[in-house]
Design a protein around this nucleic acid. Sequence first.
RNA 1: CCAGACGGUUGGACGGCCGCUGCCAAAGGUAACUUUGGUGGAGGAAAGUCCGGGCUCCACGGAAAUACGGUGCCGGCUAACAGCCGGCGGGGGUGACCCCAGGGACAGUGCCACAGAAAACAAACCUCCUCCCAGGCUUGCCUGAAGGGAAGGGUGAAACGGUGCGGUAAGAGCGCACCGCGGCCUUGGUAACAAGGCUGGCAGGGUAAACCCCACCGGGAGCAAGACCGAAUAGGGGCGGCCGGCUUUGUGUGAAAGCAUGGAAGCGGGAGUAUUUUCGAUCCGCCGCCCGGGUUGGUCGCGCGAGGCGUGUUGCAAAACACGUCCCAGAGGAAUGGCCGUCCAGCGCCCGCGAGGGUGUGGACAGAACCCGGCUUACAGGCCGUCUGGAUAU
Length: 114
Amino acid sequence: MVSYAPPDTFSLRADFLRMASRGRKLARPGFVLQAMKAAPDAPVRVGYTATKKIGNAVARNRARRRLKEAARLTLGDMGLTGMELVFICRQETATLPFTALCQNLKTALREVSQ
RNA sequence: CCAGACGGUUGGACGGCCGCUGCCAAAGGUAACUUUGGUGGAGGAAAGUCCGGGCUCCACGGAAAUACGGUGCCGGCUAACAGCCGGCGGGGGUGACCCCAGGGACAGUGCCACAGAAAACAAACCUCCUCCCAGGCUUGCCUGAAGGGAAGGGUGAAACGGUGCGGUAAGAGCGCACCGCGGCCUUGGUAACAAGGCUGGCAGGGUAAACCCCACCGGGAGCAAGACCGAAUAGGGGCGGCCGGCUUUGUGUGAAAGCAUGGAAGCGGGAGUAUUUUCGAUCCGCCGCCCGGGUUGGUCGCGCGAGGCGUGUUGCAAAACACGUCCCAGAGGAAUGGCCGUCCAGCGCCCGCGAGGGUGUGGACAGAACCCGGCUUACAGGCCGUCUGGAUAU
C-alpha cells in the first residue's frame, strides 16, 4: 500500500457557507459532495460535515472518520489539483462497505473534475 | 443444587498495513516549518447539565435585614452539598434486606368532593329504653306525655379511642383488665429515641409536595469567564505637506493699493436618498505619518490536582492521617482513527449416550471540550465476595 498524506482542510464557517450556496452538488450512496474549482495548480482543499441527523456523537465521529479516510486514499490516488470539496455524511456512511465507498468517491470526483 | 438479597469489579485479546495529534531529541532551514526516531493519547458513566465547590469577571465600606430561592428526625464525614456513613422512628417482606420530603396543626388563614342525619360544633335519620309522670285494665302489660341514651343499622378514607367483662330501664370510661393516647418521674443513650413506673379517664380530626411559622444556608454571571497580540478595508482623533472655481467677511502685514490666509459664511458644482420634474434637507479635495478603539484570526487561560496507586495506623463506617511511589489526553468544522487477519467469551444449527467435535454468527451503553466532589439516567455479557430461604445427602 502506498502512503498518502491527508489533503489540506479548511475550517472557517464562511468557507462552508460559500460552498453550500455556490458549489456544485452531487449525491452518491454514502455521501454528498459539494465541489468548486479553484486556481488550477493550487492543492486540493477539503472539508467534512456530519449533521445530527446521522445520530449521536459516536455515530457522527465514525461516519466522518470513514469519509476522511476514503477521501485521503482516493484523492492521493488520483492526484487532483485546483479543487475545493465538501463531503457531507449520510446515514449509510458508517455501514457501507469501505471499498464501495471509495469507488463511489472516485466516480464522483471524476465527474466533478471534468 | 435451585431461588433470591446486597456489595464490589470488568467493559474483549494479539498482530499487520496506512494515517491524526501533544511532548522530547536529532538533522536541515534566516524563519515559518519539514524529515527521522522515541514517547503519551477517551469513559464508568466522557452522557443529562440536576446539586455543591475551585477559578474568572462584575457589583458592593465591613456587615446585617427584608424579599426570593433552597434545605428540614438525630449524630458524624467533607472544601462544600439536596451527597455519603452510622443510628432512630414508620411501612413492606418467611428472611437476607428494601422503601419513606420523616420540623411545627394549642400563632393565624384556607380546604375536606361524593355519599351521609351530621365532616368539627354541636347534634340525631332509622332506631334503643320506660326508672320517673298520667290514663286504662285482663296486675304486668298497653297507650300517652315527658324524657333518658348513642350500644346497634346505614354512609364514608375518616363519625367525640378499640376489644372484652361488669353495670344499667336502655346506655355511656360509669367501673375494671389489656391495648392506644396525653402528662409527670426514673433509667439507658451525645442525641433522635427506647424501656419501666405512676397518673389522667380521654384532653379531642386530617391536610404544611395549601398559604404559613420556626431553624439553618445562599450577592450575580459564567472558560462564548477572562487576559494579551492584532493584518487588510471602512470609520474616529491628531500632525504635516500639496492643489483648488466665485463672492462676502475676519485675521496678519502695509500709509494705501495690494499681498497672504483651508479661519468662517454664502453661491456654484458634485454625490447619494427606487424612478421623472420641482422644492427642501444632509455631506464635501488629495497624500503621508502617528495615536486610540476594535471585527475575522492568533496566543494564553489549559493540565501537579480537595491527583492516581500501594502499604500502614485510627475508626463499626463514611473518612482522616503518615510513608512510599507515579506524572497520566489536551482537540478546536473539533486529534485519540481507517481497513484487514487470527483468536476468545456469548448465541444459533448439525453430529455424538457423553466428554466433545464441526459450522455460521458475533462484543452493550456510549466520545473529553476549564477542572474537581456528588446525584440521576443508559448499559451485551463476564468475574469475585458476603448473606437469606428452600431442596437433597451425611
